[in-house]
Write a protein that binds this DNA or RNA. Structure first.
Length: 819
RNA sequence: GCCGGAGUGGCGGAACUGGCAGACGCGCACGACUCAAAAUCGUGUACCCUCGGGUAUGUGGGUUCAAUUCCCACCUUCGGCACCA
């Protein structure tokens, strides 16, 4: 080491701190409106300020940063901002545990992470940073709530909601995960509570949310969201009980209405009491008690045997007047459809199981077309497919393709039903009984009810002096004075809402706040919006498919519907990265001890190497296990590039062929790197650059370093490296004596002529098997290719004078001789 | 159970529109340098083989002159949903 002179030694920490400082001082990465340039808004999901930037953050941000840099070099005016999703439970839990104020904890973490961010070498424009816990941010989160409230998109209702006993707050349905229905944050199984809570009408936009025709989002996300929204088309049909009460059911199979042999109500259904006959009362009450005592997990277990009790009451089937018994059973959920179903055992497996268990009638009304008819007493399972309607009065004989439509027409004409659509998606519960969030700007007045706060009074600031004991009630409620206020309508004494908003509310619009984080006349500056929006590419983890990604689109569509934004979609393209796993192929966690710390890696290898390795080690969209030996390979590559530029080159007489080949490889690499950047195929960008470096090294050994082609190669190589390894590229650029900064240079253009091959290897196959490779001039005609192939020694031997049956020529690629 | 993704050397992965399977890297082996080691550099590296060739992209079929790529069935695995009427 000692004999190496200063300039030859690659010292990333020196290079990186120096350029970081310079770029910062020069405002190299400022993005401002420029009507003369095409904009490109590249957005990466913002982090929660947990206090430490982990390798997953790097993985989510650095490859997209490289691509944003590439886009910038292509001439786009690129906006690539960063901020913090700063409200939320971890701060409050840390406060309880360590007796630090959530605000202190959060802002200290943000400071630390911002510093860590800067070492990454990302092109974030920090002037546009937005922090959701800043009053100037959450003022507008509250403002959005008020707009939703005023436009009937926010409402309050009493409902059974999921409650996490550990986090001491309610959760939205999608924040409850897994078979054991646990809290998405802490893993504790949730319980049900009946509470008065605020909701947003996400269901109003269910159809729009399922429409992906205007955006380029991954198939996987579209499928996930479509399933989550769970649209079912069918009919609502009214049955009447003997006492004249209506029981409405939702069905997706109106064509099976004639096969109804019983009805089932959810145990919680309001009509259960009235229907119950005195003889059944004891048994029924017992069943209801038992059903209510069960947790959702027990109740919704799909593998258990059906249970239920007859109410003693009957209903009349409106299509054929049949008298049918009404049961209650816990397999019918009060939360979906109408809480009541029609039982069609012949054509629904659940109803079939129920009918068999309680010996109820099974009546076949759909027969398969063409094959042997089904007999009800011989059935072993239900027949759920469409078919020809039988025993269905006037509709008997209707074929599968007409059955659904005609059955709906039929009930509509009778006036007992109508077409209807049901969704699995529920409205979004946004109330949280916690302190560290944006207060819901509503005032409760005894005279006027729930009254919106006056907009000029926003933000409703969080008080600093609170006790955050986890009591299950919002700490704001326990504050001695905070909630006391005056009704904006009548001026009387009133109380504030003490719940805060779900933090997903804050992150539903952060991409808009980045546009103008200090704008005070609205949530965003309309001029900035007009130039930058919509987001051109959004990147992040797929785990948010059913949460953040649905919320943020809902938010935008809601804002569109009330005229706040002109677009219906916030993000045109979505791409998901995979996850960096530990070396043991397991998810990284402190308890497993397999966590990779980026700070350490940066100290050891420099940020450029870490960036390059993250791009190289796996497909970005899939991720994979970390490898501490793997990164050595990338580090070696980076050092060899350094040597390529800085070590003395031997003199020699490079042949014209060598120089020609060098240029060809250079421009071929440029073409593939350009393409791969466009497609976010980061791993092959690095492989191509490694290949080219190997070629360059060989050429240098052969004395090519004194040719003009070499100079071009070093220039283009540095430019291709700039998005990947921004520090080293800048340093090499300067050492070459070129003008600062490499990050203001234009992406080089491919010289197609130079990239073109003069000679190609023609593959010769016999019966599809490789037999020979022959070198022929590029652009060879099919006829000549055929001639050359047949003339080949190997082919002549193999054919032994036989005539080929067929010869297939793939232009400039391959000749296949079939014998 | 339903929906979706993925199965390629010892490992991560590459292969653009159906046309040379295994680019690039890790690892490993050997060599150079060194008193020695590390680092670095070079060479080799799918499997079998009688050195002609043969076999290989989860398994079994099919389409085709030609299949990692298209079609059918199955297996494994990961993710989502799950008594949603």
């Amino acid at each position: 080491m000692t004999e190496l002179n200063e300039t030859n030694f690659y010292n990333p920490s020196e290079i990186e701190t120096r350029w970081q400082k310079k770029w910062d001082e020069d405002g190299l990465y400022h993005s401002d409106i420029d009507p003369h340039r095409k904009k490109y808004y590249a957005l990466t999901m913002l982090p929660y300020p947990s206090g430490d930037l982990h390798i997953g953050h790097w993985y989510a941000m650095m490859p997209p940063d490289a691509r944003a840099r590439f886009k910038r070099m292509q001439g786009f005016n690129v906006l690539f901002p960063m901020g913090f999703d700063a409200f939320g439970l971890p701060a409050e839990n840390a406060a309880i545990k360590n007796n630090i104020h959530p605000k202190t904890w959060t802002y200290a973490n943000i400071d630390k992470m911002r510093t860590q961010f800067k070492t990454m070498g990302a092109m974030f424009d920090w002037r546009r940073e937005a922090v959701s816990a800043d009053p100037e941010y959450y003022k507008w989160t509250q403002w959005f709530f008020l707009q939703f409230f005023k436009n009937d998109l926010a409402y309050r209702k009493m409902s059974p909601v999921d409650w996490c006993p550990n986090c001491n707050t309610t959760l939205a349905r999608e924040q409850v995960w897994g078979d054991d229905r646990h809290c998405e944050r802490c893993g504790t199984p949730v319980i049900k509570k009946n509470l008065e809570q605020w909701f947003f009408r996400t269901t109003r936009f269910a159809d729009e949310l399922m429409d992906f025709s205007k955006i380029d989002w991954p198939e996987r996300v579209r499928v996930l969201e479509t399933n989550w929204i769970g649209k079912s088309e069918g009919a609502l049909v009214k049955f009447k009980t003997q006492s004249g009460d209506e029981i409405e059911v939702f069905t997706t199979r109106p064509d099976t209405l004639w096969g109804v042999t019983f009805m089932v109500l959810a145990p919680e259904h309001p009509l259960v009491k009235k229907l119950t006959t005195s003889g059944q009362r004891t048994q029924l009450n017992e069943y209801i008690q038992q059903a209510l005592r069960q947790t959702d997990i027990q109740r919704e277990a799909t593998d258990k045997e059906k249970t239920g009790v007859f109410t003693g009451g009957y209903a009349i089937n409106p299509v054929n007047g049949a008298k049918i018994p009404v049961w209650i059973a816990d397999y019918v959920l009060m939360t979906y459809g109408t809480g009541a179903i029609m039982g069609v055992p012949a054509h629904d497996q659940r109803d079939f199981d129920f009918a068999r268990k309680f010996e109820l009638e099974i009546k076949v009304v759909i027969q398969p077309d063409g094959i042997a008819p089904i007999k009800s007493d011989e059935m072993e399972t239900s027949f759920p497919a469409y078919g020809v309607m039988v025993n269905s009065g006037k509709l008997t004989g209707t074929k599968a393709d007409q059955a659904f439509k005609r059955a709906i027409q039929f009930v509509e004409q009778l006036g007992v039903g109508k077409a209807s659509t049901n969704y699995r998606l529920r409205d979004w519960l946004i109330s949280r009984q916690r302190y560290w969030g944006a207060p819901i700007p509503i005032i409760y007045c005894e005279q006027c009810g729930a009254v919106p706060e006056v907009e000029s009074q926003l933000p409703i600031l969080l008080p600093d002096d609170v006790e955050w004991k986890p009591t299950g009630e919002s700490p704001l409620k326990l504050h001695p004075t905070w909630k006391n206020t005056i009704c904006p309508q009548c001026g009387g004494l009133a109380e504030r809402e003490t719940d805060t908003m779900d933090t997903f509310m804050c992150s539903s619009w952060y991409h808009l706040r980045y546009l103008s984080p200090h704008f005070s006349e609205g949530p965003f500056d309309p001029q900035e919006y007009a130039y930058w929006m919509p987001v051109d590419i959004y990147t992040g983890g797929i785990e948010h498919a059913n949460m953040h990604l649905i919320y943020t689109r809902f938010f935008h569509k809601a804002l569109h519907s009330i005229g706040v934004v002109p677009d219906t979609e916030p993000m045109l393209v979505l791409r998901n990265q995979g996850m960096v796993l530990g070396e043991d192929s397991e998810k990284m966690s402190k308890s497993r001890g397999n966590v990779v710390a980026p700070d350490k890696l940066v100290n050891q290898y420099g940020a450029d190497t870490v960036r390059a390795y993250l791009m190289f080690f796996a497909r970005w969209d899939q991720g994979g296990p970390w490898s501490s030996t793997g990164i050595e390979g990338t580090a070696r590559w980076i050092r060899r590039i350094w040597a390529l530029y800085n070590d003395p080159a031997p003199r020699g007489n490079p042949s014209t062929d060598l120089v020609r080949n060098l240029r060809r490889k250079l421009h071929q690499t440029l073409a593939s790197v350009t393409r791969d950047f466009e497609l976010l195929e980061f791993n092959t960008i690095i492989s191509s650059l490694m290949e080219l470096m190997n070629e360059l090294t060989k050429a240098k050994q052969s004395g090519a370093a004194y040719t003009p082609e070499w100079k071009e190669a070093l220039k283009i190589y540095a430019l291709m490296l700039a998005p990947v390894a921004p520090y080293m590229a800048e340093e090499l650029w300067q050492k070459m004596g070129r003008a600062y900064s490499i990050h203001h240079q234009t992406w080089p253009t491919v010289d197609a002529l130079a990239a073109a091959e003069e000679e190609i290897t023609l593959i010769v196959q016999i019966n599809g098997k490789l037999r020979d490779r022959i070198t022929v001039p590029a652009g060879i005609s099919d006829e000549d290719a055929k001639k050359e192939a047949l003339a080949s020694e190997v082919v002549r031997k193999a054919l032994e004078g036989r005539q080929p049956r067929q010869v297939i020529v793939v232009p400039e690629r391959l000749v296949n001789i079939v014998v």
